[in-house]
């Protein structure tokens, strides 16, 4: 350890990665939620962020987007500051984070995704509306365009959020628990849309809580519990060993066995 030296000029984070972070620490008061986290997601892939409750998964997305302040660390989106890349990022927040009693319709919410294009002034034209309706159609909700959002089911609300992200026409999609509390039909519809995004060469990063579907849905996984436990392709990274480390005693041997993973 005697020959430790330091390089003070930071190397840039990988510009090919749609989202890369280094040394990210975030805390709520005195309690760190993420500690010195490094991560680098591959382009054109479906990536999952997996870890136990309270492990900092949603915090990671929010800090990467600059929605909450970080104590230290750097974030890059396609090699640049996230602030300057906002029009290339589409964010799908947790469904519970908004007031669904708000007086607005499904189509209106999707049109919000076009704010980057229309800004304060530009008129919303028939073309914009057609685009928004097409996004609704992609999530199977075209018949609900004029419904007040509070009258939709949980799964339908989640689809509206996804349609809004689609309207943004972004290259990086960040989703916070998109499958939480949705019905099976919605889950299938959402995963279909995400796979089509991947086919178009876009990158998807989703906070995911259902271990049984990680291998089926995703290519790349970041296992997180306060810090990075493991990261890499699902086939080699999502193993009994890494799961045991991420979940500790919370995940019994039986559950790990049920996932039919190699190792351990």
């Amino acid at each position: 350890m005697a020959d430790l030296t330091l390089i003070e000029t930071p190397e840039p984070l990988d510009p090919a990665s749609p989202l890369a972070v280094r040394g990210l620490t975030v805390s709520y008061g005195e309690k760190p939620a993420l500690f010195s986290l490094d991560a680098q997601f591959p382009v054109g892939a479906m990536s999952a962020i997996v870890g136990p409750n309270g492990a900092g998964k949603s915090t990671f997305l929010k800090a990467a987007l600059g929605l909450i302040p970080k104590v230290s660390g750097e974030v890059s989106v396609f090699g640049r500051d996230a602030d300057r890349m906002r029009d290339r990022i589409a964010y799908v927040p947790q469904r519970a984070s908004v007031d669904w009693d708000f007086p607005t319709t499904a189509l209106d919410v999707v049109l919000m995704g076009l704010f980057g294009q229309v800004g304060l002034w530009r008129r919303i034209t028939g073309q914009h509306r057609a685009h928004a309706r097409a996004c609704l159609a992609r999530v199977g909700m075209e018949d609900f365009a004029d419904r007040q959002i509070g009258q939709l089911s949980g799964g339908q609300q989640q689809r509206i959020f996804l349609a809004r992200a689609l309207a943004q026409d972004a290259d990086l999609f960040l989703l916070d628990e998109p499958f939480a509390g949705v019905d099976a039909a919605t889950e299938a519809a959402i995963i279909g849309v995400l796979k089509s995004l991947k086919a178009e060469g876009r990158s998807v990063v989703a906070v995911h809580h259902d271990l049984s579907t990680v291998a089926e849905y995703f290519d790349h996984v970041l296992l997180v519990n306060l810090r990075r436990i493991a990261e890499g392709p699902v086939a080699t990274t999502f193993t009994a060993d890494t799961l045991a480390e991420a979940y500790g005693g919370r995940l019994g041997a039986v559950q790990i066995d049920a996932l039919a993973l190699q190792g351990g």
Binding site: M1, L4, L6, E8, E11, G23, P32, F35, S72
Partner: peptide, 22 residues
């Protein structure tokens, strides 16, 4: 946080980029 992060980086022979940490 910075002390711990810096010492961990040192222990792993990783470079430290953060000025406050240094």
């Amino acid at each position: 946080v910075h002390r711990r992060q810096g010492l961990l980086a040192l222990a792993r022979s990783e470079p430290i980029h953060d000025r406050l940490t240094l």
